[in-house]
Nucleic acid binder design. Structure first.
Lengths: 339, 339
DNA sequence: AATGCTGATGCACAGACGTGCACACTCACC
DNA sequence: GGTGAGTGTGCACGTCTGTGCATCAGCATT
């Protein structure tokens, strides 16, 4: 990053012990973080030692947090009674992270809180040399806004499915989502410049032979992690995909007729997880679900009870390995399904 | 712990979705911690959701921290310029954790801050099924007072060397140190009820064949981690060992004559790390240093510039794998030794 | 030299936080 | 049934912390 060459002037002859060890902003941030979080000094005390003002220390500390210098983990001791997490793991075979939210919140606020916690949960899982597939949609957009930075080497963010669409332009936000991920983890960003759905399956076939597309597909094949939400057909507030002009009337009718319950990255499935025979998936640019299932870590973020039926389908299809969802939905999930 | 059966009174009849999921104190602590550290809510907001007062939330949060529910790490990005840590690793082959302290602190305060940070650094390294050897002395005493709890299964704390001594009684604190470690990590504590030094090497030989002693030695052989300070002969403030009545005049003279620079767990060594020919070690109850070197993780905590020469010896002898020390000492350490 | 721009700083204030204290409740023992 | 120890709670207070604002230094452009 900012390779400030100010270190050359080590000098200061025999400066007893204070000595300007990396007197850079981030160096100070590290020292401040150690003193604050590891030695329990107050910001005032730190300011004195760093010879600066208390408010600067406050800012240094938020820098340290935002920058990933400080990592705060909340570990859920697995050995608690029949916690929701355990229950979900037992029934669906996925690692669950239940986000506590009081039931009386409006949807967008709940989404926001799930997103914050999701972002912080994902952080520690990101490694160097990772290839991270990222979908788009309101959930992922919210998550992307709360990522904390963590510098990695040689990581790549790759778009899971096309976002193109004739009607709205607002969908430039797909690339915005990717950009945020890339920024947070210091990773290359690989967009997937295709529409969400082709009009004709043949076009897809043709495009899938193009080298520009093949490069993306190859990256997707090598993904080490995938992050996505779910769409749900019966959602009260329909997902982007269902209302944003991606699908026409006929498509929607067809989804209903074929008992589709939801989608992940614009690949649709039924309640039992079946999907291979759905024609529309041959026009979708999302990842082949069989391929997706081979990604070592597949994180699904869900907020809102209306998405439950879509989520059930995704679970039946074995798509996620990790599930981050709000408490109310978690309750519904375990209630609705028999043991 | 306190299995308070107070849950029976669920009350509030059909409370829509709040629902008393594990409405125990530590359950609330977990929820509060998630909301505070993962969702950035204020304590007030959390209090509302948990239907309690803000001050209770404050207390829940400190419980969560003390209890190890919340873990705060400060990671030092290795890829910074010639940091002290890197320099020490390169020269001495140990992982260094330099504790920032302004040079103008009195010794006991510096020790305290090194100890706090040491305690927090050690925490994440402790695992289940660990066997942790712990020495005693002023440094370890300070560290033991700041350990944060972390529940483990089936771990053991084993005393590294005897603490018995005819003169002072205050040495009951050796067991106090162990007790604190045991409490913090939920581990069994195995004391080593022998004097620090035998008067006659033969007594040690005899004792070392006793089954009670063999049990401890066997545990020591299987240690997964050892934690110790260093003693330094030229220390201005002499370590306990050198002043507490463990050694007589003749012993001290001998240490000087043989060019002993310090000790770890009452096993002495010279500046070059040599120790096998020191007679006194045959009367000491500390662990054979060759054996100590086989422990996978060996953490040495040092505060105070007077201990540098002892520390140099310990490094020459290859005793620590990890070194936690204050900044001033770290500077001295790298300065004094040629590249 | 004057200019505007960017980013860091300190000040001051409002809001958030930790903690001593008094009180209420539970449980165990008399 | 009474009583006392132990524990958890809310209140109130003083301290600690985040942040808008004005300022200033550094730097590039005119």
């Amino acid at each position: 990053m900012n390779a400030s060459p100010k270190d050359g002037r080590s000098s200061s002859s025999a400066h007893s012990s204070t000595r300007e060890s990396a007197r850079s902003r981030s160096g100070d941030a590290l020292r401040a973080a150690q003193m604050y979080y590891l030695q329990d000094l107050t910001m005032n005390a730190i300011a004195r030692e760093l010879q600066t003002s208390r408010s600067t220390v406050s800012r240094l500390l938020s820098l340290a947090r935002d920058t990933g210098l400080v990592e705060i983990q909340v570990n859920n001791p697995a050995h608690r009674a029949p916690s929701l997490e355990n229950e979900i793991r037992r029934r669906f075979g996925v690692e669950a992270h239940v986000v506590p939210v009081s039931g009386t919140l409006d949807d967008s606020e709940a989404l926001d809180r799930v997103a914050i916690q999701a972002a912080r949960t994902i952080g520690p899982l990101v490694d160097s040399n990772a290839i991270i597939g990222v979908a788009w949609g309101s959930t992922l957009s919210a998550v992307s806004q709360h990522l904390t930075r963590k510098s990695t080497h040689d990581s790549t963010i790759v778009q899971l499915n096309g976002a193109g669409n004739t009607q709205t332009t607002g969908i430039a936000y797909a690339s915005e989502i990717l950009r945020r991920f890339g920024y947070a983890y210091g990773a290359r960003v690989e967009q997937f410049p295709v529409p969400a759905f082709f009009d004709h399956a043949e076009t897809k076939t043709a495009m899938w032979a193009e080298r520009s597309v093949l490069r993306i597909l190859e990256l997707q094949r090598r993904m080490t992690m995938a992050i996505f939400g779910v769409g749900s057909t019966n959602s009260g507030i329909p997902s982007h995909v269902y209302s944003g002009g991606y699908l026409d009337e006929a498509d929607l009718r067809m989804l209903h007729e074929k008992s589709v319950v939801g989608d992940v990255a614009t690949m649709f499935f039924r309640a039992d997880g079946s999907h291979r025979d759905l024609q529309i998936n041959q026009r979708s640019t999302g990842p082949n679900l069989d391929l997706l299932r081979q990604v070592p870590r597949r994180i699904c973020v869900v907020s809102g009870e209306t998405k439950i039926s879509g989520l059930r389908g995704a679970l039946a299809a074995g798509l996620p390995t990790d599930l981050i969802l709000d408490e109310a939905s978690a309750h519904l999930l375990v209630q609705g399904s028999s043991d």
